[in-house]
């Protein structure tokens, strides 16, 4: 197969790479080159996967911000809820936000490493725990509302 032609199912990166006018000396698929042009590593990533990995990271960051803001808002707005339960719920949401922020970086790093090595993406292990945490924090708030 000559360079510049893509077999079915292969995404060319970036979109103008297939142009015959481009110099392809530094864009041989499957290699990472340094500034001098020497091959420094094999890169098995599909560009679509790399971009999707970044978007997943950003979605986790937005989730983290939303959870942190929820926790802070619960405490700042002080709804008619028993104070202790209110603070516990707010703290749980903020902690979940911190965990989501950490997961954003860890998940991006692991996926980036695995896809570079040509391995499959590991399943999301923290998802069920985060869901359970949100449920517990919400139930805590509801209990406080009942006790108030």
């Amino acid at each position: 197969m000559s360079r510049g032609t893509s077999p079915p199912g292969v995404v060319t990166w970036p979109r103008r790479l297939a142009s015959p006018a481009q110099d392809r000396s530094s864009v041989v698929p499957g290699t990472i080159r340094n500034r001098e042009g020497a091959i420094v590593a094999e890169d098995h990533r599909n560009p679509q996967v790399a971009l999707a990995n970044e978007r997943t990271f950003l979605a986790w960051i937005r989730t983290s911000l939303a959870l942190t803001a929820t926790g802070a808002a619960i405490v700042a707005l002080a709804p008619p809820v028993h104070r202790g339960w209110l603070l516990a719920s707010g703290a749980m949401f903020v902690v979940l936000g911190i965990v989501a922020g950490a997961q954003a970086w860890v998940g991006w790093r692991h996926t980036d490493r695995d896809t570079r090595a040509g391995r499959g993406v590991a399943p999301l292990r923290i998802g069920p725990y985060l869901t359970a945490g949100v449920i517990v924090a919400t139930v805590t708030l509801l209990i406080g509302a009942v006790l108030a």
């Binding site: 983290s64 942190t68 902690v95 911190i98 970086w105």
Partner: peptide
């Protein structure tokens, strides 16, 4: 971005504390 987001969360936790 991740570092700053976690830092905001930690400050928020300190405020709740």
């Amino acid at each position: 971005l991740a570092g700053f987001t976690v830092a905001v969360g930690l400050v928020g936790l300190a405020w709740v504390g």
